[in-house]
Simulated assay, not measured.
Amino acid sequence: MSDAAQNVIQTISLPYGTDKRFAILRRCRRIWTIASIHGDVERLNALHETLTNRYEAGDRFVYLGNYYGYGPAILETVDELLRFRRIVLAQPPYTHLDDIVYLRGRQEEMWRKMLQLQFSGDCQEILDWMLERGADATLAAYGGRASDARSAIMEGLLAVSRWTGQLRQAIRGHSGHNEFMTGFRRAAYTDDGALLFVSGGLDPSKDLNEQEDGFWWNSQGFTEAAESGYRGFTRLVRGYDAAREGIVEHEVTLSIDGGAGFGGPLNAVCLDAAGAIVDQISA
């Protein structure tokens, strides 16, 4: 291992080794990364079917967020993600929880805020902002209605708290969904400091633990990192791109959003330990 790589490990692993906001991918030979799904369960089923015959023992998997929102089959999407995870983890040599990682995307971040709406400064404004950006599909999937939320807001914070409590109860009514939701990571990186995986963006001027909402909303920062790099990582990978331009590779960055949930394909890319593409699937 080079001195530069060792320095990155010293910088990254020590502060975050016990920080559950981040996943550390250990001793990786190959890593499959899966782009934003947005409730498109048919494409996810097709991708998993192909992936079952393509992944090799010991491959790692990083789903890059946005499982919820927009698409017509959000509950079924979560069920399929859980099904595939069970199949993979039932086979050796998978033993570590971070062999399969789910990052939190924009949709999951909005859903988290939806479930805490009573703590928002302006409940009505924030609710409308989230609904306009795809959260209405997730709300409907779990049996919620925007009209009920607006009525609760008119009654006061106690009523809003009861409404979000009903949503949480609905989530718990679907086996594994609450655990899935609470297990999201903000970002993932390899233990040699080579590869960093984010959902939608980052702020190149800030360290990982200072990003706050940058992982979901700072897409421009990810574009800037294509030229300047970030904290010594040799490759930055994201799964959401508002332009949905598909697999776009630069020297440092790799964006793979094909537009699943919006009529486009669902992409998965397999990277070697250095970040080079060694296989890919579009479903």
Score class of each variant (00 low, 15 high):
W129C: 10
D241S: 12
S205Q: 15
G176D: 09
G259Q: 00
Q10M: 14
V248A: 08
D191Y: 02
P93A: 10
S13H: 12
H250S: 15
R244E: 06
V237D: 02
D241G: 05
A146W: 10
F84M: 08
N45A: 09
L117S: 08
A90V: 02
V8H: 07
E245H: 13
R133F: 04
S120Y: 05
G105M: 03
V198A: 01
G65Q: 03
D203P: 02
V237F: 06
A46Y: 01
A46K: 14
G121R: 14
W217R: 07
L64Q: 07
L47M: 13
T33A: 14
N53T: 15
M130V: 05
Q280D: 07
S120D: 09
D122I: 12
D272Q: 07
A260T: 03
R26K: 15
I277Y: 07
D257H: 05
H48V: 13
E179R: 11
G275A: 03
L139G: 02
G143M: 07
L82A: 03
D98G: 04
A274K: 05
Y230F: 15
G259D: 01
T223V: 15
L14K: 14
T18C: 11
R29L: 11
A226N: 13
S199W: 00
R112H: 13
V101N: 03
A194S: 11
R29I: 01
Y102W: 13
H177R: 06
L97A: 15
Y230A: 09
I74G: 00
M110G: 05
D213A: 06
G134A: 12
F22N: 00
R162E: 14
D203H: 10
D98M: 03
S282P: 04
A149E: 00
T11W: 11
T164S: 13
L139N: 01
G246M: 11
L266Q: 06
G105L: 03
D128S: 11
V88F: 01
G258N: 04
G121A: 08
I281V: 13
A46F: 03
E210I: 06
E49T: 14
A226F: 03
R43L: 15
A274S: 13
G214W: 01
Q116L: 13
T52D: 15
Q116N: 13
E76V: 00
L202H: 06
R60A: 07
E132Y: 10
G201N: 04
A260S: 13
I87L: 15
E179D: 12
G121F: 12
R172H: 05
G65M: 08
E80A: 08
R106D: 08
K20D: 14
N267M: 06
